[in-house]
Structures are given as structure tokens and as C-alpha cells.
């Protein structure tokens, strides 16, 4: 780690074991289960996410990461279980209310609003807009002042993300990486306390990756907590204060990046998932990555098990509760 962040320092004394308590949790999850047919996609006994930290959620394909995100943010309903955000219970709270409470997510398949301009995408993120009510909408005097304020805030954020020059482009005209950036900036317009990023770097070219990473790293300094799903171990090792590993719906390990990388259970989980392609992952590469993570600039696709099976391979594709292999 370049310099231990405040959050990393706060987590220094926490025992790296699944379900461990944190000093200042913002999200607390208990006994959450979700199954599809016979397949248990998520089965989390207890999990706490530390406030102000960057926590990454990793795990092999089909581990249930995206389903877990969907459950936490109200986009899917668990079979049972409770979880609370800032002490507020969130079971049965609809997705839009979860967002208003300050927990905002992004999507693995980017949802840039294609036929809205970049600026409109941003403006949409602001909450409590008077002009969003049907009758008030008819009277611009009610909302125009607030609109100006929101626009200023959007301009500021766009400048911070180096996107201000494309504010009039349509969302659909942006490149994949720019969309990811836009989606993140738009999420920040909600002024959330916690952002949940589902694979923010997937499909982004290396030049933009660095920029995205910097923005993610910055978020805690704006008082935000970050939970993100990522496949690229370099990224995970680089920016996380804490790493949670899921496999087959369960939390199998959690701890600081280095501790997790050395956890034999984690290595087992990944090897079990690997389709016999030795070059893609070995315990050694994981250990090396952990050790070298401070210096990492270029990326090696270690653990990037994101590619689907080779064409013509009939037997490999398995049931995949996250739909991850079709990204």
C-alpha cells in the first residue's frame, strides 16, 4: 500500500475471518439467502462493511456477487434475511428508496441512458427535485432555480471526471469506458453515503482504467463508502482497504488484501472454478500479485476469468446465476 488510508488503519486490528465485526459498519447483513430453483445463489450468514473504506468483493464466476448487489439494493428480493444500512433496516425497501437513503449502485452492463445527453444523465441523478413532481413540472418558476443549482453541481462533477467537454453528447454516443465514467459520476449526483460499483473497470481501455481508479480511490475523501465487484486482481490489490471473497454464494474469506491473497481457501475456490487452463491462474501468480501490488501500473489479466468459453466448446458453459459470462 502506498500509504495506509484512514480506513485501512481503522481495519488494521480486525481479525481477517468471514463475518467478522468492524469498528464502524455502515452496512450489516444477516442470514440473507436467495436461491433460483435448486441453486443457492447467495447465502450470507453475517457481513459488515466498514464506513469510509474501499471494500472489494471478489470471487469466481457464479459466486453470487451481482445477485448480492441486487439483493442489497432492492433490485431482487431474498428468500429470507435482514440487512441494515446506517441502522435502517432495508428488507422489503424498494430499490428507489434504497437509493434515496444513500446507497447507490452501478451496473455491470453499463446503463448509460442512450438518448439523453450527458448533461441530462447527470441532472437525473440529483434527488429531491421539485420539478420532478407532475404538477410542479408545469410551472418552471417552482423548479428553475433549483435546476440551475443542480446544473452547476453537475458541471463541477463533469469537470472532475474530465467529461465537461462532452456534456451535449448523447449517452449512446460515448465509448464503453466513457459510459462507465458517466455512470459513476451520475451516481455521485445522488450524493450517496455508499456507492456499490459492479465491475467498474470491465471492458474499459487501460488509459481510462487509471482515471477511473483514481476517482474510485478519491471517493472516501468525499465521505463515501465504496463496495465494488472486480475481477482484476491488480486493481483489487491496489485500491482496496478490505477484500471479501465469495464462492458459491458464501463469504469464504475476508481481510486486508495481502491476507486474503494468502488464504488457501481463496486459492482453492479459484482453482476449483478454473476450467483447467493452467496459464490463467496459479497460486504463485496470486501471491506475486499481492506482493507486487504497490508497484503495479500495467495490468496483467490474472484471475480475469471473464472471457466466456471458447466457441465450439459445448460442455463448458454451466448454470450461471449472475449472468456474468454473457457480459
Amino acid at each position: 500500500m502506498a500509504e495506509p488510508t484512514a480506513a485501512a488503519a481503522a481495519l488494521a486490528d480486525v481479525t481477517p475471518e468471514p463475518g467478522v465485526s468492524k469498528p464502524d459498519p455502515i452496512l450489516v447483513v444477516d442470514e440473507v439467502r436467495r436461491s433460483f430453483g435448486g441453486l443457492t445463489a447467495v447465502n450470507v450468514d453475517h457481513l459488515e462493511i466498514q464506513r469510509g473504506a474501499i471494500t472489494s468483493l471478489i470471487g469466481p464466476n457464479g459466486a453470487g456477487k451481482t445477485t448480492f448487489f441486487n439483493l442489497m439494493t432492492g433490485f431482487d428480493r431474498p428468500d429470507r434475511g435482514t440487512w441494515s444500512f446506517n441502522g435502517q433496516p432495508l428488507a422489503n425497501v424498494p430499490a428507489h428508496k434504497v437509493a434515496r437513503l444513500g446507497m447507490v449502485r452501478t451496473f455491470q452492463l453499463t446503463k448509460a441512458l442512450t438518448r439523453l445527453s450527458v448533461m441530462e444523465n447527470m441532472l437525473l441523478g440529483a434527488t429531491q427535485q421539485r420539478g420532478e413532481r407532475f404538477l410542479s413540472a408545469l410551472l418552471p418558476t417552482i423548479w428553475s432555480a433549483q435546476e440551475t443549482e443542480i446544473r452547476a453541481r453537475a458541471d463541477e462533477l463533469l469537470a472532475r471526471f474530465n467529461m465537461d467537454y462532452m456534456r451535449d453528447e448523447l449517452g449512446g454516443e460515448l465509448s464503453g469506458g466513457q459510459r462507465k465514467l458517466l455512470e459513476m459520476a451520475r451516481a455521485l449526483m445522488v450524493e450517496p453515503e455508499m456507492v456499490m460499483l459492479d465491475e467498474p473497470m470491465a471492458g474499459v481501455n487501460p488509459a481510462l482504467t487509471q482515471s477511473l481508479l483514481t476517482h474510485v480511490k478519491d471517493l472516501p475523501s468525499f465521505g463515501m463508502t465504496v463496495l465494488f465487484v472486480e475481477h482484476d486482481m491488480d486493481v483489487v490489490m491496489d485500491i482496496s482497504d478490505w477484500v471479501i471473497v465469495m464462492a458459491q454464494g458464501k463469504i469464504i474469506s475476508e481481510g486486508p488484501p495481502a491476507a486474503v491473497a494468502a488464504d488457501p481457501q481463496v486459492i482453492d475456490a479459484y482453482i476449483g472454478e478454473d476450467h483447467g487452463d493452467e496459464s490463467r491462474f496459479t497460486p504463485t501468480t496470486l501471491a506475486t500479485t499481492a506482493a507486487a501490488s504497490t508497484e503495479t501500473v500495467g495490468r496483467s489479466p490474472v484471475l480475469d476469468d471473464h472471457e466466456g468459453p471458447a466457441t465450439g466448446d459445448v460442455s463448458a458453459p454451466s448454470d450461471d446465476p449472475d449472468g456474468e459470462s454473457h457480459a
Partner: peptide, 12 residues
């Protein structure tokens, strides 16, 4: 464009 995106931004 995408109702899940709108929902994720707190819109009912």
C-alpha cells in the same frame, strides 16, 4: 431508456 437505471438513481 432504462428503468433500472432510473430506479438506481432513486426515481419511483
Amino acid at each position: 431508456e432504462d428503468e433500472d437505471a432510473a430506479r438506481a438513481l432513486g426515481k419511483n
